[in-house]
Amino acid sequence: MNKTMKTTALVCAALFAVTACSSGGGSGPQANPSTSTPAKPATPAAPSKPATPATPAAPSKPATPATPAAPSKPATPATPAAPSKPATPATPATPSKPTTPAKPATPSASVSGNAMVSKNFSHNTAKYTAPSGNMNTSVTVDGRTIDLSKANEAFRFKEEIAAAEGNISTRQTLLSGRKYSHVRFGGQGMGVVDANYRPTHYHDTFAIGNITPLNGADAMPTSGKATYIGDAVVGTAGVLLSSESKFNVDFGAKTIKGYIDTAYEIPLSGKIVGASFSGDQDGVTMKGNFFGPKAAELGGVFSAEHRNSSYQGAFGAKKQ
């Protein structure tokens, strides 16, 4: 309620009170209420019209934002310089072909030996030649083959006399047996008849086996002495005979000396070079080798003009 209306109400209340007092006088309740006319209430003042609220000011129009400046166009990067072309590498020289290393010698890989050949019982003029083959199968001497496959059938020697066949009139072989592990030695006498029936007798003696190597655990001894005892095949007057042999070896002094035990001892001596030995003494010439690991065996061939007889043969012996 506003202030004007409050004021009007208070005025009316006051007027009502005054009227009530005057109408009573001093009589109080004995007055005739029906004869008194109540006063007309004052017309209340019209309430003042509320002030029209002020129209709020129209909001100001926001300013249009400024158009951002166009970004500056970046400068065109400089074109990189083309890299220089690398120099063509020089063609490398062709490497030289490596040489194949020499195969080291082993006791079982180096197979060699010596042989002698003579004709028509001229044993004292026998010539040295190199045998080829294998100590367990066959050996070839000057084009003639000697079968060794049956040699192990006997301990000391295998002797065989073959019947005539083809152009061969006679053939005798005498070969060392299984007593020897690293060398095979022996001889063959063979009569051959040519187309004109002219006979020629060939006498071949040989010793072949596994040469003792010069290096490694099984190499040739370079010091000390040893005795070798063995056997021999002796050809004389066109017949092959078995015999015995013995040698004394000084590895430090590089010497070998021994003999073949026949009716007259045939002396043998020589110098040692590597795993080989050779020498001449009193009309006797010989060549041989050491065979097997650490010179376990030896073997060689010889020819001789001794005590008015000629000889040709082969020998082998084992270290004691």
Rank of each mutant, 00 (worst) to 15 (best):
M1Q: 03
T4S: 15
T8Q: 14
A9I: 15
A9R: 11
T19Q: 12
A20P: 11
C21A: 15
G28R: 04
A31C: 10
N32C: 10
T35L: 14
P44G: 09
P53S: 09
P56H: 14
P59H: 06
T67V: 14
A82C: 00
S84H: 02
K85G: 08
P89T: 04
P98Y: 06
P101M: 04
P104K: 09
P104A: 07
Y128E: 10
N134I: 07
M135E: 07
N136W: 03
S138H: 06
V141C: 05
V141P: 01
L148R: 00
N152R: 01
A162K: 14
A164I: 02
E165W: 12
N167M: 10
R171Y: 04
Q172D: 13
L174F: 09
R178I: 11
K179Y: 15
V183P: 04
G187P: 07
T200K: 11
Y202S: 10
D204W: 05
I208L: 15
G209S: 13
N215Y: 15
T222Q: 08
T222E: 09
S223Y: 01
A232P: 03
V239P: 02
L240S: 02
E244F: 09
F247G: 02
F247L: 02
D250V: 08
K254W: 01
T255A: 08
Y259I: 05
P267K: 01
L268S: 04
S269V: 06
S269D: 06
G274S: 08
S278N: 14
D280Y: 14
Q281K: 12
G283V: 06
F291I: 05
G292Y: 03
G299H: 05
G300M: 02
F302A: 01
A304S: 12
R307N: 12
Y311G: 00
Y311W: 07
G313Y: 05
G316C: 09
